[in-house]
Protein backbone atom coordinates (compact mmCIF):
# COMPACT_ATOMS: atom_id res chain seq x y z
CA UNK A 1 0.00 0.00 0.00
CA UNK A 2 1.73 3.21 1.04
CA UNK A 3 5.41 4.14 1.10
CA UNK A 4 7.81 2.15 -1.10
CA UNK A 5 6.41 -1.37 -1.24
CA UNK A 6 9.78 -2.75 -2.28
CA UNK A 7 11.10 -2.07 1.18
CA UNK A 8 8.42 -4.10 2.87
CA UNK A 9 8.95 -7.78 3.65
CA UNK A 10 5.45 -8.64 2.65
CA UNK A 11 2.14 -6.86 2.58
CA UNK A 12 1.02 -8.34 5.87
CA UNK A 13 4.07 -7.87 8.06
CA UNK A 14 3.60 -5.08 10.51
CA UNK A 15 5.47 -3.07 13.05
CA UNK A 16 2.98 -2.30 15.77
CA UNK A 17 3.82 0.43 18.24
CA UNK A 18 1.46 0.31 21.19
CA UNK A 19 1.16 3.17 23.65
CA UNK A 20 -0.10 1.93 26.97
CA UNK A 21 -1.79 4.31 29.37
CA UNK A 22 -0.15 3.84 32.76
CA UNK A 23 -1.60 6.86 34.47
CA UNK A 24 -1.86 5.66 38.09
CA UNK A 25 -4.47 8.24 38.98
CA UNK A 26 -6.72 7.11 36.16
CA UNK A 27 -6.41 3.44 36.99
CA UNK A 28 -7.08 3.97 40.67
CA UNK A 29 -10.38 5.66 39.81
CA UNK A 30 -11.42 3.44 36.92
CA UNK A 31 -13.94 0.64 37.20
CA UNK A 32 -11.68 -1.98 35.60
CA UNK A 33 -8.49 -2.82 37.42
CA UNK A 34 -5.16 -2.35 35.68
CA UNK A 35 -4.29 -6.02 36.08
CA UNK A 36 -7.47 -7.09 34.25
CA UNK A 37 -6.76 -4.60 31.49
CA UNK A 38 -3.14 -5.61 31.26
CA UNK A 39 -3.84 -9.31 31.04
CA UNK A 40 -6.15 -8.77 28.09
CA UNK A 41 -3.64 -6.48 26.41
CA UNK A 42 -0.78 -8.90 26.97
CA UNK A 43 -2.73 -11.66 25.33
CA UNK A 44 -3.38 -9.39 22.39
CA UNK A 45 0.28 -8.40 22.09
CA UNK A 46 1.28 -12.01 22.11
CA UNK A 47 -1.21 -12.81 19.37
CA UNK A 48 0.25 -10.03 17.24
CA UNK A 49 3.63 -11.67 17.42
CA UNK A 50 2.06 -15.01 16.66
CA UNK A 51 0.40 -13.72 13.51
CA UNK A 52 3.69 -13.53 11.68
CA UNK A 53 7.23 -14.46 12.45
CA UNK A 54 8.35 -11.13 11.10
CA UNK A 55 5.89 -8.98 13.01
CA UNK A 56 7.54 -6.51 15.27
CA UNK A 57 6.12 -5.07 18.44
CA UNK A 58 7.08 -2.05 20.50
CA UNK A 59 5.29 -1.03 23.66
CA UNK A 60 5.56 2.50 25.04
CA UNK A 61 4.27 3.29 28.48
CA UNK A 62 2.42 6.61 28.73
CA UNK A 63 2.75 7.87 32.26
CA UNK A 64 1.69 11.21 33.60
CA UNK A 65 5.24 12.44 34.15
CA UNK A 66 7.21 10.58 31.52
CA UNK A 67 7.02 8.06 28.72
CA UNK A 68 9.27 5.11 28.08
CA UNK A 69 9.81 2.08 25.89
CA UNK A 70 8.86 -0.96 27.91
CA UNK A 71 9.10 -3.61 25.26
CA UNK A 72 10.73 -4.05 21.90
CA UNK A 73 10.49 -7.45 20.23
CA UNK A 74 13.52 -6.63 18.05
CA UNK A 75 15.74 -5.81 20.98
CA UNK A 76 18.25 -8.35 22.22
CA UNK A 77 18.09 -6.96 25.74
CA UNK A 78 15.03 -8.95 26.75
CA UNK A 79 16.89 -10.37 29.68
CA UNK A 80 14.18 -11.55 32.04
CA UNK A 81 14.14 -15.35 31.80
CA UNK A 82 10.93 -17.11 30.81
CA UNK A 83 9.25 -18.56 33.85
CA UNK A 84 7.06 -21.57 34.01
CA UNK A 85 3.92 -19.50 34.31
CA UNK A 86 4.45 -17.02 31.52
CA UNK A 87 6.37 -16.52 28.25
CA UNK A 88 9.37 -14.21 27.89
CA UNK A 89 7.28 -11.42 26.34
CA UNK A 90 5.15 -11.05 29.44
CA UNK A 91 7.88 -11.23 31.99
CA UNK A 92 10.08 -8.81 30.09
CA UNK A 93 7.30 -6.34 29.60
CA UNK A 94 6.16 -6.53 33.20
CA UNK A 95 9.69 -6.19 34.45
CA UNK A 96 10.28 -3.07 32.38
CA UNK A 97 6.89 -1.70 33.26
CA UNK A 98 7.62 -1.97 36.96
CA UNK A 99 10.87 -0.11 36.48
CA UNK A 100 9.11 2.52 34.42
CA UNK A 101 6.43 3.07 37.04
CA UNK A 102 9.06 3.50 39.70
CA UNK A 103 10.90 6.02 37.54
CA UNK A 104 7.69 7.84 36.77
CA UNK A 105 6.82 8.09 40.41
CA UNK A 106 10.16 9.66 41.23
CA UNK A 107 9.47 12.37 38.68
CA UNK A 108 6.07 13.21 40.11
CA UNK A 109 5.70 16.62 41.59
CA UNK A 110 4.42 16.86 45.14
CA UNK A 111 1.65 19.34 44.26
CA UNK A 112 -0.32 16.65 42.46
CA UNK A 113 -1.39 15.25 45.78
CA UNK A 114 -3.18 18.36 46.86
CA UNK A 115 -5.09 18.99 43.69
CA UNK A 116 -6.78 15.62 43.59
CA UNK A 117 -7.56 15.96 39.88
CA UNK A 118 -6.60 13.17 37.52
CA UNK A 119 -3.72 14.56 35.45
CA UNK A 120 -3.62 13.74 31.78
CA UNK A 121 -1.25 11.13 30.44
CA UNK A 122 1.56 12.35 28.21
CA UNK A 123 0.04 11.10 24.97
CA UNK A 124 1.96 13.63 22.91
CA UNK A 125 5.26 12.31 24.23
CA UNK A 126 4.27 8.72 23.59
CA UNK A 127 3.19 9.54 20.03
CA UNK A 128 6.44 11.35 19.39
CA UNK A 129 8.45 8.40 20.67
CA UNK A 130 6.44 6.02 18.52
CA UNK A 131 7.03 8.18 15.45
CA UNK A 132 10.73 8.42 16.21
CA UNK A 133 10.95 4.65 16.44
CA UNK A 134 9.09 4.29 13.16
CA UNK A 135 11.34 6.80 11.47
CA UNK A 136 14.34 4.80 12.62
CA UNK A 137 12.76 1.68 11.19
CA UNK A 138 12.23 3.49 7.89
CA UNK A 139 15.87 4.49 7.74
CA UNK A 140 17.61 1.38 8.99
CA UNK A 141 18.25 -1.60 6.77
CA UNK A 142 16.80 -2.32 3.40
CA UNK A 143 13.61 -3.91 4.62
CA UNK A 144 11.16 -2.90 7.30
CA UNK A 145 7.71 -4.06 8.36
CA UNK A 146 4.74 -1.82 7.77
CA UNK A 147 4.32 0.45 10.77
CA UNK A 148 1.19 1.51 12.60
CA UNK A 149 0.48 2.95 16.00
CA UNK A 150 -2.13 1.74 18.46
CA UNK A 151 -3.05 3.99 21.36
CA UNK A 152 -4.58 2.23 24.33
CA UNK A 153 -5.77 5.22 26.23
CA UNK A 154 -8.03 5.62 29.21
CA UNK A 155 -7.38 8.97 30.83
CA UNK A 156 -8.96 12.12 29.53
CA UNK A 157 -7.33 14.47 27.03
CA UNK A 158 -4.94 17.08 28.30
CA UNK A 159 -5.86 20.19 26.32
CA UNK A 160 -2.45 21.65 27.13
CA UNK A 161 -0.94 19.02 24.83
CA UNK A 162 -3.11 20.06 21.89
CA UNK A 163 -0.41 21.60 19.74
CA UNK A 164 2.09 18.83 20.40
CA UNK A 165 -0.45 16.12 19.67
CA UNK A 166 -1.67 17.79 16.51
CA UNK A 167 1.90 18.11 15.33
CA UNK A 168 2.47 14.42 16.02
CA UNK A 169 -0.74 13.58 14.15
CA UNK A 170 0.27 15.58 11.12
CA UNK A 171 3.73 14.08 11.03
CA UNK A 172 2.16 10.63 11.23
CA UNK A 173 -0.11 11.62 8.38
CA UNK A 174 2.88 12.75 6.37
CA UNK A 175 4.72 9.49 6.81
CA UNK A 176 1.46 7.58 6.20
CA UNK A 177 1.46 5.91 9.58
CA UNK A 178 -2.12 5.26 10.70
CA UNK A 179 -2.90 5.84 14.35
CA UNK A 180 -5.45 3.38 15.68
CA UNK A 181 -7.01 4.21 18.96
CA UNK A 182 -8.83 2.13 21.47
CA UNK A 183 -10.23 4.43 24.09
CA UNK A 184 -11.56 2.86 27.25
CA UNK A 185 -12.33 5.98 29.27
CA UNK A 186 -15.80 7.22 30.00
CA UNK A 187 -16.19 10.00 27.42
CA UNK A 188 -14.73 10.03 23.94
CA UNK A 189 -11.26 11.36 23.37
CA UNK A 190 -11.27 14.21 20.87
CA UNK A 191 -7.52 13.93 20.34
CA UNK A 192 -7.63 10.26 19.44
CA UNK A 193 -10.70 10.71 17.27
CA UNK A 194 -8.90 13.35 15.30
CA UNK A 195 -5.69 11.33 15.21
CA UNK A 196 -7.44 8.31 13.74
CA UNK A 197 -9.57 10.36 11.41
CA UNK A 198 -6.67 12.31 9.96
CA UNK A 199 -4.26 9.41 9.64
CA UNK A 200 -6.85 6.96 8.38
CA UNK A 201 -6.72 4.69 11.40
CA UNK A 202 -9.54 3.22 13.41
CA UNK A 203 -11.03 4.83 16.47
CA UNK A 204 -13.04 2.49 18.62
CA UNK A 205 -14.43 2.75 22.09
CA UNK A 206 -15.27 -0.76 23.25
CA UNK A 207 -18.54 -0.75 25.14
CA UNK A 208 -17.81 -3.98 27.00
CA UNK A 209 -14.46 -3.83 28.72
CA UNK A 210 -14.41 -7.41 29.99
CA UNK A 211 -14.19 -8.54 26.37
CA UNK A 212 -11.42 -6.14 25.52
CA UNK A 213 -9.19 -8.85 24.08
CA UNK A 214 -11.80 -9.77 21.54
CA UNK A 215 -12.25 -6.18 20.46
CA UNK A 216 -8.53 -5.76 20.14
CA UNK A 217 -8.05 -8.92 18.15
CA UNK A 218 -11.04 -8.34 15.88
CA UNK A 219 -10.60 -4.67 15.20
CA UNK A 220 -6.99 -3.75 15.78
CA UNK A 221 -5.02 -6.90 14.99
CA UNK A 222 -5.60 -6.70 11.25
CA UNK A 223 -2.66 -5.48 9.20
CA UNK A 224 -3.07 -2.59 6.83
CA UNK A 225 -3.25 -4.75 3.73
CA UNK A 226 -6.09 -6.84 5.09
CA UNK A 227 -8.03 -3.78 6.12
CA UNK A 228 -8.81 -3.11 2.51
CA UNK A 229 -10.97 -6.24 2.47
CA UNK A 230 -12.58 -5.91 5.88
CA UNK A 231 -15.40 -3.82 7.10
CA UNK A 232 -14.15 -2.41 10.35
CA UNK A 233 -16.15 -0.20 12.68
CA UNK A 234 -16.19 3.39 11.56
CA UNK A 235 -16.60 6.09 14.10
CA UNK A 236 -19.72 8.10 13.50
CA UNK A 237 -18.58 11.33 14.94
CA UNK A 238 -15.30 13.11 15.26
CA UNK A 239 -14.91 15.87 17.78
CA UNK A 240 -13.05 18.51 15.82
CA UNK A 241 -12.89 21.01 18.61
CA UNK A 242 -9.54 22.62 19.16
CA UNK A 243 -7.75 23.90 22.20
CA UNK A 244 -6.91 27.57 22.37
CA UNK A 245 -3.24 28.42 22.37
CA UNK A 246 -3.50 30.91 25.19
CA UNK A 247 -5.21 29.01 28.01
CA UNK A 248 -5.13 25.48 26.55
CA UNK A 249 -8.84 25.06 26.93
CA UNK A 250 -11.06 23.15 24.56
CA UNK A 251 -13.29 25.65 22.83
CA UNK A 252 -16.25 25.62 20.44
CA UNK A 253 -15.83 29.16 19.18
CA UNK A 254 -12.76 31.23 19.12
CA UNK A 255 -10.55 33.64 17.30
CA UNK A 256 -8.22 32.43 14.58
CA UNK A 257 -5.10 34.29 13.55
CA UNK A 258 -5.48 35.13 9.91
CA UNK A 259 -1.78 34.67 9.30
CA UNK A 260 -0.72 31.50 11.12
CA UNK A 261 -4.13 30.03 12.06
CA UNK A 262 -3.35 29.97 15.77
CA UNK A 263 -6.48 29.63 17.86
CA UNK A 264 -7.37 31.87 20.76
CA UNK A 265 -10.32 31.87 23.12
CA UNK A 266 -10.31 35.63 23.51
CA UNK A 267 -9.40 38.66 21.48
CA UNK A 268 -5.75 39.61 21.40
CA UNK A 269 -4.10 42.64 19.90
CA UNK A 270 -1.21 40.57 18.70
CA UNK A 271 -0.82 36.94 17.73
CA UNK A 272 1.36 35.31 20.36
CA UNK A 273 2.55 32.68 17.86
CA UNK A 274 3.55 34.67 14.81
CA UNK A 275 3.46 38.21 16.15
CA UNK A 276 0.98 39.57 13.63
CA UNK A 277 -0.77 42.69 14.87
CA UNK A 278 -4.53 42.46 14.45
CA UNK A 279 -6.48 45.44 13.22
CA UNK A 280 -8.48 47.39 15.74
CA UNK A 281 -12.03 46.87 14.57
CA UNK A 282 -15.07 47.91 16.57
CA UNK A 283 -15.38 45.65 19.56
CA UNK A 284 -18.93 44.46 19.14
CA UNK A 285 -18.60 44.12 15.41
CA UNK A 286 -15.61 41.82 15.78
CA UNK A 287 -17.23 39.69 18.39
CA UNK A 288 -20.10 39.09 16.04
CA UNK A 289 -18.13 38.64 12.84
CA UNK A 290 -14.74 37.25 13.54
CA UNK A 291 -15.87 34.65 15.98
CA UNK A 292 -15.55 31.72 13.69
CA UNK A 293 -17.36 28.54 14.40
CA UNK A 294 -14.78 25.92 14.82
CA UNK A 295 -15.34 22.62 13.10
Amino acid sequence: MPSAPSKLYADDVSLLVVTLDTNPFFWSTFSVSFSDFLSQVLAFLNSILLLSQLNQLVVIATGCNSCGYVYDSASSKNHAPPTASMPALYSNLLHNLEQFVARDQKLSKPDHDTQGIVPASLLSGALSMALCYIQRAFRSGSMHPQPRILCLQGSADGPEQYVAIMNAIFSAQRSTVPIDSCYIGSNNSAFLQQASYITGGIYYKPPQLDGLFQYLSTVFATDLHSRAFLRLPKSLGVDFRASCFCHKQTIDMGYVCSVCLSIFCERHDKCSTCGSVFGQAKQDVTSANSKKRKA
Binding site: W27, S28, F34, S35, L94, E98, A102, D113, I117, V118
Partner: peptide
Protein backbone atom coordinates in the same frame (compact mmCIF):
# COMPACT_ATOMS: atom_id res chain seq x y z
CA UNK B 1 -16.77 17.81 36.28
CA UNK B 2 -13.42 16.11 36.36
CA UNK B 3 -13.20 12.88 38.20
CA UNK B 4 -11.70 13.56 41.51
CA UNK B 5 -8.96 11.31 42.60
CA UNK B 6 -8.96 10.86 46.30
CA UNK B 7 -5.73 8.92 46.38
CA UNK B 8 -2.37 10.52 46.84
CA UNK B 9 0.23 9.87 44.20
CA UNK B 10 1.98 7.52 46.60
CA UNK B 11 -1.11 5.38 46.92
CA UNK B 12 -1.94 5.55 43.26
CA UNK B 13 1.48 4.39 42.18
CA UNK B 14 1.38 1.73 44.83
CA UNK B 15 -1.88 0.49 43.44
CA UNK B 16 -0.49 0.34 39.93
CA UNK B 17 2.57 -1.53 41.02
CA UNK B 18 0.47 -3.95 43.01
CA UNK B 19 -1.55 -4.80 39.90
CA UNK B 20 1.62 -5.37 37.90
CA UNK B 21 3.11 -7.68 40.48
CA UNK B 22 -0.25 -9.36 40.78
CA UNK B 23 -0.12 -10.35 37.13
CA UNK B 24 3.49 -11.32 37.53
Amino acid sequence: VKIRCSLSSEEAYGCLRASISNIK
